[in-house]
Simulated scan of single mutants.
Amino acid sequence: MADHIGSRQRQLLELLLESKDGLCIDEMARALNISRNAVQQHISVLELEGYLQAGDLHKTAGRPVRRYVLTEAGINSFPKQYAWFSMLMLGDLKKEIGSEAFQRYMSKLGDNLSQSYKYRFTGKPADERREELLKIMDELGFKTGGKIDSGNNNPATIKAYNCIFHDLAQKHNEICQFDIALMASLLEKDVELAECMAKGSGACCFKITNK
């Protein structure tokens, strides 16, 4: 769960997680043994941060009361095991089809993803295509610093200072073929992974050469 959420607010979110239809202020106050005003203050903060929202009015014997429910952000603030599940799934896939086929599969995934970005490269010269690739990589979280190293007749080089699937790549180096295929398809150039963070380098270094 998000670290900045206070202990009482965490308890309130846990109550709502267990009550899919939502709870009203009085119900939350009784469950937590705190005042209605305290609940309202916590709700105001959590609603402002997008963790919960006001639901429908609920009919009672008296006046209708407003229930509060978790938003998707509220649900996602609880622990998830995406990395663990991905590791489990990829490990089983690699075992099932073999390392070479697994490498081809990752390359295919990268190439498939590139198709959704192709429109951003249409009609652009080589230098603008490289700049557009940097933007896309940064959007994906690779942290390139927005620059390409080139000169002295050396191949143009892109350095990525964040591996977006570092733990997975440490276990399965074939995953790096995803990056290579994505970049090669968008630039229509050959791409070589010269240095790799998953193998201990300080950055992933991609060299770009003509096909």
Rank of each mutant, 00 (worst) to 15 (best):
M1K: 00
A2M: 08
H4N: 15
I5T: 08
L12T: 12
L17I: 06
E18K: 03
E18F: 10
E18Y: 12
K20N: 05
I25N: 11
E27C: 09
E27Y: 02
M28N: 14
A29H: 01
L32P: 00
L32F: 06
L32V: 07
N33M: 03
N33K: 06
N33L: 04
N33D: 07
I34A: 09
S35W: 04
R36D: 13
Q40F: 12
Q40I: 15
H42M: 11
H42W: 14
I43Y: 08
I43H: 08
I43K: 12
S44Q: 06
L46D: 10
E47W: 04
L48N: 08
E49A: 15
E49S: 10
E49P: 11
L57V: 09
A61I: 08
R63F: 03
P64N: 04
V65T: 11
R67S: 07
R67E: 03
Y68M: 04
Y68G: 04
L70S: 02
L70T: 02
A73D: 04
G74K: 01
G74T: 00
G74Q: 00
S77T: 00
Q81D: 09
Y82E: 06
Y82S: 01
M87I: 03
M87S: 06
L88R: 02
G91R: 00
G91D: 10
E96W: 13
A101T: 15
F102A: 10
K108N: 14
K108Q: 14
L109N: 07
G110H: 13
D111H: 12
N112R: 02
N112Y: 07
L113N: 14
Y117H: 11
Y117E: 15
Y119D: 02
T122F: 05
T122E: 12
G123T: 05
K124H: 13
K124Y: 13
D127E: 15
E128V: 04
E128Y: 07
E131W: 06
E131I: 13
E131G: 04
E131A: 12
E132Y: 07
L133D: 14
L134I: 02
K135V: 09
I136Q: 09
M137A: 12
E139G: 12
F142D: 07
F142P: 06
G145C: 15
G145Q: 14
G146I: 01
G146M: 11
G146A: 13
I148S: 03
D149W: 11
S150T: 14
G151V: 09
G151M: 05
N152W: 06
N153P: 02
A156T: 08
T157S: 05
T157R: 13
K159F: 00
K159R: 12
Y161V: 11
N162C: 05
H166G: 00
H166N: 04
H166R: 00
D167R: 03
A169R: 00
Q170F: 03
K171T: 15
H172P: 00
F178N: 03
D179F: 09
D179A: 09
I180P: 00
I180H: 03
S185G: 10
S185V: 00
L187I: 06
L187T: 08
K189V: 01
V191C: 08
C196Q: 06
C196N: 14
M197F: 10
M197N: 11
M197Y: 07
M197S: 05
A198Y: 02
A198Q: 01
G200D: 14
C204F: 04
C204A: 08
C204K: 07
C204D: 09
F206Q: 05
K207Y: 09
K207F: 09
I208S: 01
N210G: 10
K211A: 05
